[in-house]
Write a protein that binds this DNA or RNA. Sequence first.
DNA 1: AATATGTTTGAAAACCTTTTCAGAAAACCT
DNA 2: AGGTTTTCTGAAAAGGTTTTCAAACATATT
Lengths: 334, 334
Amino acid sequence: MKSTIRDVAKLANVSISTVSRVMNAPETVIEEKRVKVLEAIEALQYQPNAFARGLIYKKSDTLGVMIPDIENPYFAGLIRGMQDAAVELNHSLMICNTDRDKQRTITYVQNFFEKQVDGIVFASDALHTEYYEEMQRYRLPFVLASTNAPEFDIPSVDIDDEQGAYEAVKYLIESGHRRIGMIGFPLGETISGLPRYDGFRRALREYGLNTFETCVEYAEHRYEHAYDAAALLLTRCPGLTAIFAASDEFAMGTISYLRDIGKSVPEHLSVIGFDNIRMAQLFIPKLTTIEQPTYDIGYRSVQKLHELITTGEVSVLREKLPHQLIVRESTRPY
Amino acid sequence: MKSTIRDVAKLANVSISTVSRVMNAPETVIEEKRVKVLEAIEALQYQPNAFARGLIYKKSDTLGVMIPDIENPYFAGLIRGMQDAAVELNHSLMICNTDRDKQRTITYVQNFFEKQVDGIVFASDALHTEYYEEMQRYRLPFVLASTNAPEFDIPSVDIDDEQGAYEAVKYLIESGHRRIGMIGFPLGETISGLPRYDGFRRALREYGLNTFETCVEYAEHRYEHAYDAAALLLTRCPGLTAIFAASDEFAMGTISYLRDIGKSVPEHLSVIGFDNIRMAQLFIPKLTTIEQPTYDIGYRSVQKLHELITTGEVSVLREKLPHQLIVRESTRPY
DNA sequence: AATATGTTTGAAAACCTTTTCAGAAAACCT
DNA sequence: AGGTTTTCTGAAAAGGTTTTCAAACATATT
């Protein structure tokens, strides 16, 4: 059915070696035969079989990507960056949605291994020891995107979460806010939980607002949880004038709650987000937030993985990309 | 480096045929050897090489997916559904972002072909004849997800756009609105452009509101365009009390514009969207919209592709999944 | 003319698996 | 015991490519 190198050889009246050479080292075959082969290839719509090739080269030019939750808009930019980098490197991406499910994640790793991916980008989730061991077991090169693993020496690309959070809260303080609370990720399980809280605290302490260190509630990844957390936060710390949300989604959930109890943003309270997902500028009010260079994180992480695969090492182990405060409408001076 | 079937055979003191049998037809090998082989497999972390396998089976258990714009949240649900179906079928997904770029799309098809995907899901974009021919050229099985191609006999999974639009507009009319406009997709290029406009028109005509057929402006996929289109629409048809937006993103862009000119939704105008993307319920006001079963569309499309690949045909060619009106806060009776 | 050098080519091995085929061993029958 | 069937096994071929090696030929050098 599909034409093979043999068919091309026959049609062009040469050996299969010659056909192979035309494709891989054209300068070594005499012009006359070369054009005959090229014509035959065109005529038969010949495309070399990636299986046979892979068998020889021992690589697939395919990279595996593990994403915890593809419905989270944060990952769209990440994937886009990865995709573009992959295209430039002539590679393909195999993308998996782990749902933060351990069993599923491990199954995917095995699957990737069997499909002979050249490496894996592990995005955004905390790297549990199990995962680490699984990767080690199969000796698969991998890098972390938008997360990192202080305890292991694994290449990673992300931002400085602590500093980002610090700048967000500092901005609020310098706008005159004094009573500031936070909606954060759970400290333990998640990778940006602790550093963002640390940044929050550092800013508070710097301005002597230590009392508000305890005005924190935690939510797990989704809007609805942030909505509930905001309710808890405001009953516990009723006098707040500003809230630092550890993600834009949390900011939206918080604002939604505030609206439901009749407080509008930024008139009654200021809310600052984190990430600058695309929705941040579509939301009403447009979100003041810390921008993460998601596209670049994705792009760089694939480049880094490629570097790791081809050279066996990586020039910078933990790469931090710049973030940026973006002031929009959800905050105002107090 | 990686262990092969040969290593396992050696360690277990059997022939490679036996090892292969242990993996593919365990009942044909005597227990004693079977356990020895199993132990050897475990000890060596052996995983069969997908290249060698593919060479024999002539299939990769991998499906290609083409998405026009991964940053559009509409696709998140779609991908999730596809992913879940793929997992159940023990397949992997290779996902590509075409950016609606013709050249890039065609390159991807070639790439998929070379990587020996078993088939392709082509999502949501209009199927240009070029694409169709490219697929035919490589004889790749493919199905359309969330789009269709009336002119070709290609399996597809989507909803009844015309009917969905009709129901949206009918709902507005039955809530007392009479002066209704629309923000639509361009009629020509895009697949849901015309049917959604047709549905809009059918509802108007049914209630004798034909004069408003011309109160339509077009935007191209993104929020900002809808914002501008809303401006145009309202200057041209100033008296509108309700707007049917052909997507939730358009609805959000429209509402954003309305707010900027001091009109609030739903107090001054009602706006109804389409798709029910996740943001629809997070937006303020929460969007009234026509829900598309995106997850199911993705899920079914992969199942259908698998059916096409394995049996060579498909039981229902054009599958229409049910949509549903979801009333939230962006509309109110007039 | 004979030798050395360089260019171009095809045959064959290698990559790793599955599967066919035939042979060996075991089990069954008379 | 001898013959027949069944069960289990290993050798070898096949799948499509790249690459090594040696052969064939042409060209340059003496």
